[in-house]
Design a protein around this nucleic acid. Structure first.
Lengths: 310, 310
DNA sequence: CCGAATAGTTGACAACTTCAACTATCTCGT
DNA sequence: ACGAGATAGTTGAAGTTGTCAACTATTCGG
C-alpha cells in the first residue's frame, strides 16, 4: 500500500520534472521567427514528405480548425504550399516549399542541439544509462506490443552479472527462491565464461533495441561425450508471450547440431511451466524427474533429452 | 560519432513520447472548472503553504503579469486570498482559502489517479523498474549535486549480480579489464554469500533514494586469526567526489573493530588512485606490493594493513 | 441517387503568451 | 539621510492557442 503511494509520488515527481525539461527545450525555439506550433507543424510535414490536414491534426493532437489557420499562415510565409488532392478533392496535399525544407532542417538542428545539451554534462557511461533508462520508460509505458528488431547476440562485459541479477530477482519474486540460487547461477555463469572454447559453447542474449529480453546458453554436458547441455533459459516478464523463449531454444538446438553434438540435455524444475512447453515444442522429452530441496523451496527437478541425429 | 547521433535521436524520441504522456495526463484536468494554469497554481500554493507572486512566477515559469491576473481570478473564485507582506510591502502573501484547500486536495487526488493510470497496466516488478528508471533519468539530468538521504543497508536478492555487472562494466571502461575480472568477482560475491555467519562478515550498499551508489564488504581474512579483510570497495561514477567511499570504509572499519577483529587488511591495485587515498585517510598503511598480470592488464597489486587495537 | 460520413474552412470567445510601460517599495552606497 | 537602481506587482495591448459549433464541398455505401 505504501509502495503504491510511493510509486505514484515518484511518477508525479518525474512528470513535474520532465515538464520542466520539455519547457526548457522548447524555450530554445523562441529564437526562431516561428511559434512552437508552427515549428512542430513544419517538422511533422518534413518528416512525412506530404500529408493532409487531418493527418497533421490527429498526429499533433490539434483542432482541425487550428490546423487550417496555421497552415495558411505558413503558406503566407512561403514555407508550405497546399494543392487539392488528386483522387479525393476534399483532401489537400500539404508540402514544404524549398524555403520550408531549409527551415525544417534548421529546426531539426536546433532540436538536436537542445537534446545534445541535455547529454552534454554526462560522460559516455552516463549517456548510455540515460538512453537505456529512457527506452525502458517508453517501453513500459507504451505497453509495447510493438514487434521491433529482436537480435540474438553474444554477451558483453558485465552482462553475466546482469543476468545473475535479473534471474535471482525474478525467481525470488515468482517462486520465492533464496540467495542460494543467486550464488549458484553466479558460479554457473562464471564457469561458463572460464570454460575452454572447445568443446563448443555459446551464450546468446535476446536484444530488443538495446534491452535484454532473455538469454540462454549451451555447454558440453559434464562427463558425456558428444552431448550438449542447455542452461539458464530465461525471458524477461515484459517480453513474455512473444515466442522469444522458443526462438532462443531453437537457436541453441541449431547451434548444438551444427557444432557436432549428438544429443542435448537440460535440467529444469517442474514449476517452470512455460519453459516446459517450450522444451516440448522443441522436441525434448522428459527422461526422469527427482524431488529435491534447494533454494529454500521444495522442488521437482526434471531431466529432459533431445536426440540431435534425426 | 554514430553513438552520439543515436543518443540524440533517442533523447528526442523520448521527449516527443513524454510530451504526449504529459498531454494525456493534463487532459484529465479538463473535468474540473479550473484551467490548467489555475490548477497548477493552486497546487503550487498548496505545496508551499504561503508564497509570493514572484516565487510562483519563477517556480511555474510564468510571466509575472499572467501570475497577477491569474491570482486575482482565483481570488474572485474564492480559492485564494492575498494580503500585503508583513516586512516587505511590495511582496504579497498568497494563501489558499478553506475552499482552496479543498480544491487542492481534489486536484491532488485527480493527479494521483492519473499517475496511477500510468502504473495500472504494470505488475509489481514493472512498476519498480519504471520508478527506478525515472529516478535515474532525473538524477542524471539534474546533475544531482543534491545531497539526499544516503543509507547503508545490507544487500537484497539479486544485488550481488548487480554489483558484479556494474563493477565489471566500470573497470572495463576505465582500465580495460576483461571478463576474467567479471568471473572473479562473481565468485568472490558468491563466496561471500555462502560463507558461514561466524567469524563475522558484512556487506553494505550505499543506497541513495533506492539507487545503488556504492558498496563494500568485510570478511574474515583467509588463514589469519582475528584479521578482517576489506573487499570490493566501489563507488558509482556519478556519485563520486561526495565522500561516499570514505564513509563506506569507515563503516566497515567500525564494524570490524566492534566484531572483535584486531587487524584489517585489503588488497588493491595501484591504478585505483582515489581508492588509495581513501585507505590512507582511514589509517591503512601500505605493507607490500607486487607486480602481476591479471584481467588482461599489467597491474601493481598493493597489500594494505590497519591495526584496529589502538 | 440520397443520406451519412469525411475534409476542410470560418466565426466566436476565452485563455495563454509576450512585451512594455507604470507604480510602489526596498536596498545600498556615500 | 538620500538618490540611483533593483525588485514586486499591476495594467494594457497585440498576437497565438484551445475549444466549440456552424457551414461547404466531396466522397462513400447501399
Amino acid at each position: 500500500m505504501s509502495d503504491q503511494t510511493d510509486d505514484i509520488a515518484a511518477v508525479r515527481r518525474f512528470n513535474r520534472f520532465y515538464t520542466r525539461i520539455i519547457g526548457l527545450l522548447e524555450e530554445g525555439m523562441h529564437r526562431t521567427r516561428f511559434t512552437l506550433s508552427e515549428a512542430r507543424m513544419i517538422h511533422e510535414i518534413g518528416k512525412r514528405g506530404a500529408t493532409s490536414g487531418s493527418e497533421l491534426a490527429s498526429e499533433l493532437g490539434m483542432d482541425p480548425g487550428q490546423v487550417s489557420r496555421l497552415l495558411w499562415r505558413l503558406v503566407d510565409q512561403d514555407q508550405v504550399y497546399i494543392t487539392p488532392g488528386d483522387d479525393d478533392r476534399r483532401r489537400s496535399r500539404v508540402s514544404l516549399t524549398a524555403d520550408g525544407d531549409k527551415t525544417c532542417a534548421r529546426l531539426n538542428i536546433m532540436s538536436d542541439e537542445a537534446a545534445a545539451g541535455l547529454l552534454e554534462p554526462l560522460d559516455r557511461s552516463g549517456r548510455r544509462r540515460l538512453v537505456q533508462a529512457m527506452k525502458l520508460v517508453m517501453r513500459l509505458l507504451s505497453g509495447s506490443p510493438e514487434k521491433g528488431p529482436l537480435a540474438f547476440r553474444p554477451h558483453r562485459i558485465g552482462e553475466l552479472g546482469w543476468l545473475t541479477y535479473r534471474q535471482a530477482l525474478l525467481y525470488n519474486q515468482e517462486y520465492g527462491w533464496n540467495s542460494e540460487f543467486e550464488t549458484l547461477i553466479a558460479r554457473i555463469y562464471a564457469d561458463y565464461e572460464d570454460a575452454p572454447a572447445t568443446p563448443p559453447k555459446a551464450l546468446w542474449l535476446a536484444d530488443f533495441d538495446g534491452e535484454v529480453a532473455g538469454s540462454v546458453f549451451v555447454v558440453p554436458a559434464a562427463g558425456e561425450e558428444k552431448t550438449a547441455q542447455l542452461r539458464m533459459l530465461y525471458v524477461e516478464p515484459t517480453f513474455r508471450g512473444k515466442g522469444i523463449g522458443g526462438m532462443l531454444v531453437d537457436h541453441a538446438v541449431k547451434f548444438a547440431r551444427n557444432a557436432g553434438y549428438r544429443r542435448m540435455i537440460l535440467w529444469t524444475q517442474d514449476c517452470l511451466v512455460s519453459a516446459r512447453k517450450i522444451y516440448q515444442a522443441a522436441g525434448f522429452t522428459l527422461a526422469r524427474d527427482e524431488r529435491h530441496q534447494s533454494f529454500g523451496a521444495d522442488l521437482n527437478g526434471q531431466y529432459w533429452v533431445l536426440d540431435l541425429e534425426n
